[in-house]
Amino acid sequence: MTEALTPARTSRGLDVADAPRTARVTKPFTPPEAGGTLPPGTGGGTGRRAGKGGDGRGRRLGPGRPVPFGRLLGPALLLAAWWAASSAGVLDPRILSHPWSVVSTAVELVADGRLQGNVLISLQRAGLGLLFGVVAGVALAVVAGLSRTGEYLVDGPLQIKRAIPSLAMLPLLILWLGIGEDMKVTVIALGVAVNMYINTYASLTGIDSRHVELAEVLRLSRWRFVRKVVIPGSLPGFFVGLRLGVTSSWLGLIVVEQINATSGIGYMMFQAQQYAQSDVIVVGLVAYGVFGFASDALVRAIERRALSWRRTLAG
Protein backbone atom coordinates (compact mmCIF):
# COMPACT_ATOMS: atom_id res chain seq x y z
CA MET A 1 0.00 0.00 0.00
CA THR A 2 2.48 2.57 1.17
CA GLU A 3 4.99 1.51 -1.40
CA ALA A 4 2.49 2.15 -4.16
CA LEU A 5 1.86 5.64 -2.85
CA THR A 6 5.40 6.85 -2.38
CA PRO A 7 6.46 7.24 -6.05
CA ALA A 8 3.46 9.46 -6.80
CA ARG A 9 4.18 11.65 -3.80
CA THR A 10 7.88 12.08 -4.45
CA SER A 11 7.55 12.77 -8.18
CA ARG A 12 5.00 15.47 -7.49
CA GLY A 13 6.61 17.25 -4.62
CA LEU A 14 10.23 16.79 -5.54
CA ASP A 15 11.23 20.36 -6.34
CA VAL A 16 8.73 22.14 -4.12
CA ALA A 17 9.23 20.17 -0.96
CA ASP A 18 12.95 20.00 -1.26
CA ALA A 19 13.94 22.86 1.03
CA PRO A 20 11.74 22.08 4.05
CA ARG A 21 12.65 18.47 3.63
CA THR A 22 16.35 19.01 4.12
CA ALA A 23 15.63 21.29 7.04
CA ARG A 24 13.68 18.55 8.67
CA VAL A 25 16.35 15.97 8.11
CA THR A 26 19.12 18.08 9.56
CA LYS A 27 17.12 19.22 12.54
CA PRO A 28 17.72 16.24 14.82
CA PHE A 29 21.45 16.61 14.36
CA THR A 30 21.68 20.21 15.49
CA PRO A 31 22.49 20.46 19.18
CA PRO A 32 19.70 21.85 21.38
CA GLU A 33 21.50 25.18 21.97
CA ALA A 34 21.82 25.77 18.26
CA GLY A 35 18.16 24.86 17.74
CA GLY A 36 17.11 27.46 20.30
CA THR A 37 18.87 30.30 18.48
CA LEU A 38 16.70 29.94 15.39
CA PRO A 39 14.51 33.00 15.02
CA PRO A 40 10.95 32.09 15.95
CA GLY A 41 8.76 31.45 12.96
CA THR A 42 11.40 29.88 10.72
CA GLY A 43 10.50 26.48 12.05
CA GLY A 44 6.84 26.97 11.11
CA GLY A 45 7.22 24.98 7.92
CA THR A 46 8.27 21.88 9.80
CA GLY A 47 4.92 21.63 11.51
CA ARG A 48 6.28 22.02 15.04
CA ARG A 49 5.93 25.15 17.06
CA ALA A 50 9.37 26.69 17.21
CA GLY A 51 11.09 27.12 20.53
CA LYS A 52 8.27 25.58 22.47
CA GLY A 53 10.50 23.55 24.71
CA GLY A 54 13.08 26.31 25.08
CA ASP A 55 11.06 29.28 26.29
CA GLY A 56 10.82 27.94 29.84
CA ARG A 57 7.06 27.66 29.99
CA GLY A 58 7.37 24.13 31.30
CA ARG A 59 4.80 21.42 30.91
CA ARG A 60 1.59 22.48 29.18
CA LEU A 61 -0.59 20.47 31.58
CA GLY A 62 1.59 21.15 34.60
CA PRO A 63 0.69 23.68 37.28
CA GLY A 64 2.99 26.35 35.83
CA ARG A 65 6.35 27.72 36.80
CA PRO A 66 7.25 28.05 40.48
CA VAL A 67 7.72 31.61 41.79
CA PRO A 68 10.11 32.20 44.73
CA PHE A 69 8.17 32.56 48.02
CA GLY A 70 4.94 32.23 46.09
CA ARG A 71 3.67 29.98 48.84
CA LEU A 72 3.50 32.99 51.17
CA LEU A 73 0.96 34.85 49.02
CA GLY A 74 -2.15 33.26 50.59
CA PRO A 75 -1.15 33.95 54.23
CA ALA A 76 -0.17 37.52 53.32
CA LEU A 77 -3.58 38.20 51.79
CA LEU A 78 -5.30 36.80 54.88
CA LEU A 79 -3.23 39.06 57.13
CA ALA A 80 -4.02 42.09 54.98
CA ALA A 81 -7.74 41.38 55.21
CA TRP A 82 -7.55 41.10 59.00
CA TRP A 83 -5.60 44.33 59.24
CA ALA A 84 -8.06 46.16 57.02
CA ALA A 85 -11.09 44.88 58.92
CA SER A 86 -9.63 45.84 62.32
CA SER A 87 -8.51 49.28 61.18
CA ALA A 88 -11.93 49.99 59.65
CA GLY A 89 -13.55 49.08 62.96
CA VAL A 90 -15.52 46.20 61.43
CA LEU A 91 -13.79 43.77 63.80
CA ASP A 92 -14.58 44.27 67.51
CA PRO A 93 -11.30 44.11 69.53
CA ARG A 94 -13.11 41.93 72.11
CA ILE A 95 -13.63 39.35 69.37
CA LEU A 96 -10.23 39.69 67.76
CA SER A 97 -7.51 42.22 68.59
CA HIS A 98 -5.95 44.44 65.98
CA PRO A 99 -2.85 42.88 64.40
CA TRP A 100 -0.82 45.76 65.72
CA SER A 101 -1.84 45.11 69.34
CA VAL A 102 -1.01 41.45 68.78
CA VAL A 103 2.46 42.52 67.66
CA SER A 104 2.99 44.81 70.66
CA THR A 105 1.73 42.07 73.02
CA ALA A 106 4.18 39.68 71.41
CA VAL A 107 6.98 42.18 71.94
CA GLU A 108 6.00 42.48 75.62
CA LEU A 109 5.83 38.72 76.03
CA VAL A 110 9.28 38.40 74.50
CA ALA A 111 10.62 41.22 76.63
CA ASP A 112 9.59 39.58 79.90
CA GLY A 113 10.73 36.19 78.62
CA ARG A 114 7.35 34.47 78.91
CA LEU A 115 7.02 33.69 75.22
CA GLN A 116 10.47 32.16 74.80
CA GLY A 117 10.12 30.02 77.91
CA ASN A 118 6.75 28.68 76.86
CA VAL A 119 7.79 28.18 73.25
CA LEU A 120 10.90 26.27 74.29
CA ILE A 121 9.01 23.90 76.52
CA SER A 122 6.40 23.33 73.80
CA LEU A 123 9.07 22.70 71.19
CA GLN A 124 10.74 20.23 73.49
CA ARG A 125 7.51 18.30 74.00
CA ALA A 126 6.69 18.22 70.30
CA GLY A 127 10.27 17.39 69.33
CA LEU A 128 10.63 14.51 71.79
CA GLY A 129 7.22 13.13 70.86
CA LEU A 130 8.09 13.35 67.18
CA LEU A 131 11.46 11.68 67.68
CA PHE A 132 10.12 8.73 69.68
CA GLY A 133 7.13 8.42 67.37
CA VAL A 134 9.22 8.36 64.18
CA VAL A 135 11.69 5.83 65.56
CA ALA A 136 8.96 3.54 66.87
CA GLY A 137 6.78 3.84 63.78
CA VAL A 138 9.61 3.12 61.34
CA ALA A 139 10.98 0.24 63.42
CA LEU A 140 7.56 -1.38 63.58
CA ALA A 141 7.00 -0.84 59.85
CA VAL A 142 10.33 -2.48 59.00
CA VAL A 143 9.60 -5.44 61.27
CA ALA A 144 6.12 -5.87 59.80
CA GLY A 145 7.20 -5.24 56.22
CA LEU A 146 10.18 -7.55 56.04
CA SER A 147 9.05 -10.63 57.89
CA ARG A 148 5.82 -12.57 57.85
CA THR A 149 5.98 -13.20 61.60
CA GLY A 150 6.48 -9.50 62.21
CA GLU A 151 3.49 -8.70 60.02
CA TYR A 152 1.23 -11.09 61.94
CA LEU A 153 2.38 -9.77 65.32
CA VAL A 154 2.58 -6.06 64.62
CA ASP A 155 0.13 -5.14 61.91
CA GLY A 156 -3.07 -6.21 63.68
CA PRO A 157 -2.56 -4.20 66.88
CA LEU A 158 -1.47 -1.13 64.94
CA GLN A 159 -4.46 -1.25 62.62
CA ILE A 160 -6.66 -1.41 65.74
CA LYS A 161 -4.75 1.45 67.31
CA ARG A 162 -5.25 3.41 64.12
CA ALA A 163 -9.00 3.20 64.59
CA ILE A 164 -8.71 4.69 68.10
CA PRO A 165 -7.64 8.33 68.11
CA SER A 166 -4.61 8.87 70.34
CA LEU A 167 -6.50 11.56 72.18
CA ALA A 168 -9.18 9.05 73.12
CA MET A 169 -6.53 7.18 75.09
CA LEU A 170 -5.80 10.25 77.15
CA PRO A 171 -7.78 9.20 80.26
CA LEU A 172 -5.98 5.87 80.36
CA LEU A 173 -2.58 7.45 79.82
CA ILE A 174 -3.21 9.97 82.59
CA LEU A 175 -4.16 7.09 84.85
CA TRP A 176 -0.92 5.27 83.99
CA LEU A 177 1.58 8.08 83.65
CA GLY A 178 0.11 10.94 85.63
CA ILE A 179 -0.13 14.45 84.27
CA GLY A 180 3.60 15.13 83.91
CA GLU A 181 5.86 15.37 80.91
CA ASP A 182 5.92 11.59 80.34
CA MET A 183 2.22 11.56 79.59
CA LYS A 184 2.47 14.57 77.27
CA VAL A 185 5.34 13.16 75.23
CA THR A 186 3.70 9.72 75.08
CA VAL A 187 0.44 11.09 73.70
CA ILE A 188 2.30 12.98 70.99
CA ALA A 189 4.55 10.01 70.17
CA LEU A 190 1.58 7.66 69.85
CA GLY A 191 -0.07 9.83 67.24
CA VAL A 192 3.15 10.25 65.30
CA ALA A 193 4.04 6.55 65.44
CA VAL A 194 0.74 5.46 63.93
CA ASN A 195 1.11 7.88 61.02
CA MET A 196 4.68 6.81 60.43
CA TYR A 197 3.82 3.14 60.63
CA ILE A 198 0.81 3.18 58.30
CA ASN A 199 2.56 5.05 55.51
CA THR A 200 5.99 3.48 55.76
CA TYR A 201 4.50 0.01 55.94
CA ALA A 202 2.25 0.63 52.93
CA SER A 203 5.23 1.86 50.96
CA LEU A 204 7.39 -1.09 52.06
CA THR A 205 4.85 -3.71 51.04
CA GLY A 206 4.17 -1.82 47.83
CA ILE A 207 7.74 -2.18 46.57
CA ASP A 208 7.62 -3.36 42.98
CA SER A 209 7.93 -7.15 42.85
CA ARG A 210 9.99 -6.74 39.68
CA HIS A 211 12.63 -4.96 41.73
CA VAL A 212 12.63 -7.81 44.23
CA GLU A 213 13.07 -10.22 41.34
CA LEU A 214 15.99 -8.18 40.07
CA ALA A 215 17.61 -8.33 43.50
CA GLU A 216 17.21 -12.11 43.39
CA VAL A 217 18.74 -12.39 39.94
CA LEU A 218 21.69 -10.27 41.06
CA ARG A 219 21.94 -12.40 44.19
CA LEU A 220 21.97 -9.44 46.54
CA SER A 221 22.50 -10.24 50.19
CA ARG A 222 19.60 -9.49 52.51
CA TRP A 223 21.35 -6.47 53.97
CA ARG A 224 22.26 -5.06 50.57
CA PHE A 225 18.70 -5.68 49.39
CA VAL A 226 17.38 -3.69 52.35
CA ARG A 227 19.87 -0.88 51.75
CA LYS A 228 19.60 -0.58 47.98
CA VAL A 229 16.00 -1.58 47.31
CA VAL A 230 13.84 -1.56 50.42
CA ILE A 231 14.89 1.69 52.08
CA PRO A 232 14.98 3.89 48.95
CA GLY A 233 11.80 2.25 47.70
CA SER A 234 9.91 3.03 50.89
CA LEU A 235 11.20 6.61 51.29
CA PRO A 236 8.21 8.20 49.52
CA GLY A 237 5.85 6.62 52.06
CA PHE A 238 8.20 7.52 54.89
CA PHE A 239 8.00 11.19 53.95
CA VAL A 240 4.22 11.13 53.64
CA GLY A 241 4.17 9.65 57.14
CA LEU A 242 6.64 12.22 58.39
CA ARG A 243 4.60 15.15 57.16
CA LEU A 244 1.43 13.75 58.70
CA GLY A 245 3.41 12.93 61.84
CA VAL A 246 4.70 16.48 62.21
CA THR A 247 1.17 17.81 61.86
CA SER A 248 -0.14 15.33 64.38
CA SER A 249 2.62 16.20 66.85
CA TRP A 250 1.40 19.81 66.92
CA LEU A 251 -2.17 18.63 67.28
CA GLY A 252 -1.24 16.40 70.21
CA LEU A 253 0.76 19.20 71.77
CA ILE A 254 -2.18 21.59 71.73
CA VAL A 255 -4.41 19.09 73.49
CA VAL A 256 -1.95 17.96 76.17
CA GLU A 257 -0.96 21.54 77.00
CA GLN A 258 -4.52 22.35 77.97
CA ILE A 259 -4.63 19.56 80.53
CA ASN A 260 -3.18 20.59 83.84
CA ALA A 261 -0.14 22.15 82.25
CA THR A 262 1.81 24.88 84.04
CA SER A 263 3.92 25.87 81.06
CA GLY A 264 3.90 25.87 77.29
CA ILE A 265 2.13 27.84 74.59
CA GLY A 266 -1.15 26.05 75.27
CA TYR A 267 -1.00 26.95 78.96
CA MET A 268 -0.27 30.57 78.07
CA MET A 269 -3.31 30.67 75.80
CA PHE A 270 -5.53 28.97 78.36
CA GLN A 271 -4.56 31.56 80.93
CA ALA A 272 -5.30 34.35 78.49
CA GLN A 273 -8.75 32.96 77.91
CA GLN A 274 -9.52 33.41 81.62
CA TYR A 275 -8.72 37.10 81.37
CA ALA A 276 -10.23 37.56 77.88
CA GLN A 277 -6.85 38.57 76.37
CA SER A 278 -7.56 37.75 72.75
CA ASP A 279 -4.23 39.28 71.70
CA VAL A 280 -2.27 36.73 73.78
CA ILE A 281 -4.39 33.93 72.34
CA VAL A 282 -3.58 35.15 68.84
CA VAL A 283 0.13 35.29 69.69
CA GLY A 284 -0.11 31.65 70.78
CA LEU A 285 -1.98 30.72 67.61
CA VAL A 286 0.61 32.50 65.49
CA ALA A 287 3.38 30.65 67.33
CA TYR A 288 1.67 27.32 66.65
CA GLY A 289 1.11 28.34 63.05
CA VAL A 290 4.67 29.48 62.46
CA PHE A 291 6.11 26.28 63.89
CA GLY A 292 3.66 24.09 62.03
CA PHE A 293 4.37 25.88 58.76
CA ALA A 294 8.13 25.92 59.27
CA SER A 295 8.35 22.27 60.24
CA ASP A 296 6.30 21.23 57.22
CA ALA A 297 8.49 23.34 54.96
CA LEU A 298 11.57 21.74 56.47
CA VAL A 299 10.25 18.23 55.86
CA ARG A 300 9.34 19.19 52.30
CA ALA A 301 12.85 20.50 51.69
CA ILE A 302 14.42 17.31 53.04
CA GLU A 303 11.99 15.25 50.98
CA ARG A 304 12.87 17.11 47.80
CA ARG A 305 16.54 16.43 48.34
CA ALA A 306 16.12 12.80 49.29
CA LEU A 307 13.73 12.04 46.45
CA SER A 308 15.48 14.06 43.78
CA TRP A 309 15.45 11.01 41.50
CA ARG A 310 11.70 11.29 41.15
CA ARG A 311 10.08 13.01 38.23
CA THR A 312 6.82 14.52 39.40
CA LEU A 313 4.24 16.91 38.05
CA ALA A 314 5.30 19.70 40.42
CA GLY A 315 9.03 19.21 39.89
Binding site: R210, K228, V229, P232, L307
Partner: peptide, 10 residues
Protein backbone atom coordinates in the same frame (compact mmCIF):
# COMPACT_ATOMS: atom_id res chain seq x y z
CA UNK B 1 14.33 -8.54 31.17
CA UNK B 2 11.92 -7.05 28.67
CA UNK B 3 11.89 -3.87 30.74
CA UNK B 4 15.29 -2.52 31.68
CA UNK B 5 14.41 -2.79 35.35
CA UNK B 6 16.81 -0.10 36.48
CA UNK B 7 16.20 1.08 40.02
CA UNK B 8 14.94 4.65 39.62
CA UNK B 9 16.69 5.88 42.77
CA UNK B 10 20.17 4.77 41.74
Amino acid sequence: FQDSRLLPWL
